[in-house]
Amino acid sequence: MSNTLTVTVVTPEGTAYEGEAVHVVVPAFDGEMSFYPLHAPLVGVLGYGELRVARPDGVTEYFYLAGGVVQVADNEVSILAEAVMPAAALNIADANKALAEALASHATGDVEIDIRAAQTEDARARLRAAHAATERGQLTPDEILDLPVE
C-alpha cells in the first residue's frame, strides 16, 4: 500500500480540495484529530477549526472548516463540510466582529441558546485560525493591527 493519504474535501457547492497528503489534522468536535497513512477506518464528527493538510512536497495547506464529518478508510480521508475556506481568506477583524455579535445576541429558549453557542464557537475558532494564519505570515500586517482586546 501507499504511504500517502488521498484527501478530498467536498461541500454542497463542489469539491473544495482534492490531493495527496502525508499527514492530515482535522478539527474534531472535541479537539484535533490527526491521521497518518494506514489509519484504521474511522467516522467522526467535526467541529469548527483548522484543517491542515501536509502535502508530500513538504507544503502544508491550511483551511478553515465549519463543522462536518470525516471518514477515513483505505488511506482515503473524505471530509464532508458545509463551508470551507482557505485560512488565508480569514480576517481577524471579521472574526472579531462575528464574535462580538454572537456574544451580544440575546438568547431565550433552548434552540436559541444552542444557536448562540454554535455562533460563538464558530467565531472563536475563526479568530484562532486567523491568528494562527497571521503568525505564519499568511495575513497582511494591516489586518494584524486589529488585534482584539480580550
Binding site: 474534531a28 468536535f29 472535541d30 484529530m33 484504521a40 477506518p41 474511522l42 467516522v43 467522526g44 464528527v45 464529518v69 478508510a73
Partner: peptide, 13 residues
C-alpha cells in the same frame, strides 16, 4: 466490511 471506529458513536453521528 471494515469495522469503523465511530467518534463519538454511530447514533450521535
Amino acid at each position: 466490511q471494515q469495522n469503523f471506529i465511530f467518534h463519538p458513536s454511530a447514533e450521535q453521528i
